[in-house]
Amino acid sequence: MKFAQLKSLPLLLMFALLLVGCSGEAEKVVEKPAPVHIESGDECHVCGMAITRFPGPKGEVITEKEQTVHKFCSTRDMFAWVLQPENVMRKHTLYVHDMSQTEWASPDDTALIDAREAVYVIGSERKGAMGQTMASFSTEAAAHDFMKEYGGEMLRYDAITLEHLNTEMPMGDMHGDMHSDMHGEMKH
């Protein structure tokens, strides 16, 4: 009987290793890819313009399955691509510049943040590539400071629609009553 038990031991060990291997796969946490630096020769995935020749925040999308990097000359162009019906439900990794951490004229790629967690100011006086753009910030406080100087309306990622991209947003003055109205409209 001991021989039969020893004979089945390797089989039991293999089965145990297989179970551990399977459970390890199920528990594996998928890390999001790191942002990719925007180089001087890179062109916008939407309009083909040289990305680094223009001011304002830029964007990039890393596709989930292929891990292909699409770079954009502005946050507006990035949203124009992301909000297309064939892209809107996908779980791509998205990055934008935190404009509270970098210069408007030439954003530094060390200031790239998760676009889904950013706060956006749309309709400000500041222009990017293609004119009107959305200033991106890591905090509401930074977005409010920007709006005090340049106007605009604050929106969260999930609140931005194609309509915001297709129309010029009214210039907002964030003093007085408008501040409380805006804050109440924000999605969290």
Rank of each mutant, 00 (worst) to 15 (best):
A16D: 03
V29N: 09
R126N: 06
K32C: 02
P85H: 05
E103Y: 04
P55L: 09
M186K: 10
R126H: 01
H175P: 00
L165I: 12
D158S: 15
P85F: 09
L162F: 10
A16G: 13
F3E: 15
L11R: 12
H37G: 10
K127P: 00
T52R: 15
P55D: 11
M171N: 05
L18I: 12
S100Y: 00
E31L: 14
V36F: 07
H37L: 12
G184K: 08
V30Y: 11
R126P: 01
N87H: 15
V82H: 09
K148Y: 11
P55I: 08
A129H: 07
G59Y: 10
P57T: 01
Q5C: 02
M130R: 07
L12E: 03
L162K: 10
Q67S: 12
M154A: 01
E86N: 13
V69G: 07
M130Q: 09
T93I: 06
V30Q: 07
V96Y: 00
L17Q: 05
G48Q: 13
K187I: 11
G123Q: 02
P170K: 08
R53M: 13
V88F: 04
R156G: 05
L12Q: 10
V36L: 10
P170S: 01
A143H: 05
M1F: 12
S23G: 00
R53W: 05
D158F: 05
F79S: 04
T68H: 08
M186Y: 07
S8G: 00
D98F: 11
P10F: 09
E31R: 13
L165A: 12
C44I: 09
T167D: 09
E125L: 11
M14N: 06
E86G: 07
S124I: 03
V46G: 00
A26G: 02
Q5Y: 13
F54R: 08
V61P: 02
K58Q: 14
A105E: 15
A143N: 02
H92Q: 09
D109V: 11
K91L: 10
G59K: 02
G172N: 05
C73E: 06
I122F: 02
E153T: 15
I122H: 02
T68Y: 09
L165K: 06
Q67C: 00
Y120G: 04
S100L: 02
E86L: 09
Q101V: 04
T75W: 05
V96I: 07
L94E: 03
G48P: 08
T63S: 14
F146G: 00
S136E: 01
C73T: 10
A105P: 02
A118F: 01
Q5N: 08
G152Q: 00
M89V: 04
M49G: 07
G24D: 06
I113M: 01
